[in-house]
Amino acid sequence: MSRQGVILYGPPAAGKDTVTTALTKQSPRYAQFARLKVGTGKSSGYRMGAAERLRELEAAGDVVYANSRYGNTYVIDRPGLDDSFAAGVPVVHLGQVDGIRALVDGYTADWSVVLLWCPRTVTAQRSAGRGDSDTTARLAAWDATHEDLDAHPDLAWDLTVDTTAVSPQEAARLIDQLLMRRAGAASV
């Protein structure tokens, strides 16, 4: 059986953290992939690292994808993915189509790609409601995510979830069912 992973794509405050929490409550095999973060700010959900560590990963060819946002660099690295797959089913959060393509093309696994979506006004409400100090930057990221989607109309999603209409628990159930179907199809 091939290794399974989940990519949750969507704008800020679309529910990536909340759906991942619901997935991990549904089954201990799921775990959020902790990207390497070079910078400052929120550390929860990340492996914090220095610029030197990023240079080492780059020199070794172990950076699968990196992006900069909010004044930080976020890295999906091969050693981190190896560890995550050894532990179960990693759930990778992304907000860039280039990141999806880099991950699917650059790290061999059976990736299920899920679009989590919410309107811009909902991102603003959720960001303010959780006390983000950078809601304006998050809305700019929402705009960039929307433009990214518009620029890639050919991108196929394994599952699309409107997080204003579907509860996190239902989204988790749908994602789990998707992976079970794919695992069943792969074993035939």
Rank of each mutant, 00 (worst) to 15 (best):
M1I: 08
S2K: 12
R3I: 01
I7Y: 04
I7S: 02
L8D: 05
Y9M: 12
G10A: 05
P11S: 14
P11Y: 03
P12I: 11
A13D: 14
A13H: 14
G15F: 11
G15Q: 09
D17E: 13
D17Q: 06
D17N: 12
T20Y: 02
T20D: 02
T20W: 01
L23E: 13
L23P: 09
T24Y: 01
T24R: 10
K25Q: 15
P28F: 03
Y30F: 15
V38C: 04
V38Q: 03
G39S: 04
G41W: 00
K42W: 02
S43Q: 13
G45S: 06
R47H: 12
G49D: 01
A50V: 04
A51V: 12
A51K: 11
A51I: 12
E52Q: 12
R53C: 03
E56Q: 14
E56R: 05
L57P: 00
A59C: 03
G61S: 06
V64G: 02
N67S: 13
Y70D: 06
N72E: 01
Y74N: 01
Y74R: 01
D77M: 01
R78W: 00
R78I: 00
P79N: 07
L81D: 04
D82T: 09
D82I: 02
D82G: 05
D83L: 10
F85P: 07
A86H: 07
A87G: 02
G88D: 11
G88R: 08
V91T: 06
V91C: 03
V92E: 03
H93Q: 07
H93L: 05
G95D: 13
D98R: 11
G99S: 10
G99M: 10
G99Y: 12
I100Q: 10
R101M: 11
R101C: 01
A102T: 00
A102S: 13
A102R: 02
D105N: 14
T108W: 08
A109P: 06
W111Q: 05
S112N: 09
S112L: 12
V113D: 09
V114S: 09
L115Y: 14
L116S: 10
L116M: 10
W117G: 10
C118K: 03
R120C: 08
T121I: 08
V122C: 03
T123K: 07
A124P: 04
Q125G: 03
R126Y: 09
A128T: 13
G131K: 05
D132L: 07
S133L: 12
T135F: 04
T135M: 10
T135P: 05
T136E: 15
A137P: 02
L139G: 09
A140D: 15
A141D: 14
A141P: 03
W142R: 08
A144S: 14
A144V: 01
A144M: 10
T145H: 13
H146N: 13
E147P: 01
D148C: 08
D150M: 12
D150Y: 03
A151F: 06
P153R: 08
P153I: 10
D154E: 15
D154F: 08
D154R: 09
A156K: 11
W157A: 07
D162W: 06
T164Y: 05
V166T: 15
Q169L: 09
Q169W: 11
A171S: 15
A171Q: 06
A172D: 08
R173I: 02
L174D: 13
I175Q: 11
L178I: 10
M180Q: 14
M180G: 01
A185E: 15
A185N: 12
A186M: 07
